[in-house]
Design a protein around this nucleic acid. Structure first.
Lengths: 252, 252
DNA sequence: CGCCTATTCTGTACGGCGTAGAGAGTTAGG
DNA sequence: CCTAACTCTCTACGCCGTACAGAATAGGCG
């Protein structure tokens, strides 16, 4: 019996893809590719040229195959993106023996996520509206939760804390990458860009209306454009976040 | 769906658009539209059908005009998205007289952002790679900073705290909306969805491998699918976050 | 007034996208 | 061997953003 899935795609199929389909004997010609090759090719393109460059035609071209032949391996592009997401999540280290309690463990979780985002910036632009229940994502979720297991937090609180850390990293990376790529893809340096923009800005608003934004924006801009400082900002914010978690845990 | 990019071309032009161009006498035929009408139409479509439904052709159609005629008002779609972003940011209330110090002020900032995201969920999918220096965005940034001004934090720390709150809200909304829209656009209830998926999951992984994820995931799923609880989770996480900020401020 | 010219808007077209559908080629099970 | 299952190619549809050419409009200047 087959069910008809109008809007979304077949959950069974994507599950098989994520977890590795059981090898059946196949009647037709030998497949020239594998799902893994396709996902790897798509990931390589995304790493090199960004998510926008990942199209079925581009991926197929890289594999010496027509676009449509990919559809014998993967139901569609959305599922390919799901597979890319789960695949890269296998890269994060998950050591079991981090000493020092929940805080160093959560710090490691955050830093691994930070590093993963920097390796694959296109992760920022993946909209994960629906859960992707792949093996690596679940394993990572489990690992992250274990960082705060046994601290007296309720299950829901544990989920929330882990979610918070993930969200924070996401946002911090976005800020860092925006600052880093701003001068790069406009072909101008940071100073040139601002030099061009600031007279326009000044013509149109008086700094007196937004005194705090003007002052702080300048300071923050300088901080972020310094060589190593997005990472320091990340660490700083992380410390604040974990202080909040600590306050919660100590109250238990 | 993947993220939409915004920002890009001639800085002078987009600045004029954002801040309202100086009215010059124009020689040709009277314009049938205004930038404001176009941005409003695009926003209405995004509110009703999501960001993916916003195309130049769709917006033009809604205004009784061809797609190309929009390009006399707006340099391109990226700039239209910039304008939409700045436009909706005017909606957030910014009262000056919040009593109780920085914490209630920051809470208000977060709740206003939360409400804005819920009114315009497509904001989640807007990635602003470069800053959009519109009047409403700057005004909001200034307002948010004033919430923590005079607390002894450095300028850079102020920026960081405000950024953190914004990032947290972004992530929390994403989680809440994912939970809410999951059953909706698949045409199934939450229970049906899980009932269909869980046998597939069970066939493929044993709960013993991910004991914590299994337990916590179930608890969190139940919590989020309850009617009002994404909002409670949001408030809870916000409290933790602000506890961290408080620890920093008190140390000053 | 009438011309010139800047501006608005339309029509058409290009190259991209995701993917549906038909059909050619290939291989295993009966 | 035949047939059915399977892979892969080709063509095509309907979207997308937008470049370009040209028609219509109307203010500035003679």
């Amino acid at each position: 019996m087959t069910t008809e899935y109008s809007g979304g795609s077949d959950p069974k199929r994507i599950m098989e893809l994520l977890w590795g389909a059981p090898e059946r004997t196949r009647r037709g010609p030998k497949p020239r590719l594998s799902v893994e090759q396709i996902v790897a090719a798509a990931t390589a393109i995304a790493d090199a040229e960004g998510l926008a460059a990942v199209s079925m035609r581009r991926v197929a071209e890289r594999l010496g195959v027509t676009a449509m032949s990919l559809y014998t391996y993967v139901p569609g592009k959305a599922e390919l993106l799901d597979l890319m997401l789960d695949r890269v999540c296998a890269e994060t280290a998950k050591p079991d023996d981090v000493p020092g309690g929940w805080r160093p463990r959560l710090e490691l979780v955050a830093r691994e996520a930070w590093a993963l985002y920097l390796r694959h910036p296109w992760l920022l632009h993946l909209a994960t509206n629906r859960p992707v229940l792949g093996p690596n994502l679940i394993a990572r979720y489990d690992y992250e939760l274990r960082a705060v297991d046994g601290t007296g937090l309720t299950d829901v609180e544990m989920d929330l804390v882990v979610q918070m850390v993930g969200d924070y990293v996401h946002g911090a990376v976005r800020g860092a990458l925006a600052a880093a790529t701003l001068p790069v893809d406009s072909g101008k340096t940071d100073d040139e860009w601002w030099a061009e923009l600031s007279p326009l800005l000044e013509k149109v608003y008086d700094a007196d209306r937004f005194p705090v934004a003007t002052r702080v924006g300048a300071a923050a801009g300088q901080e972020y454009s310094a060589p190593l400082d997005p990472a320091r900002a990340f660490e700083f914010g992380l410390a604040r976040l974990l202080d909040g978690v600590a306050a919660l845990i100590e109250r238990r």
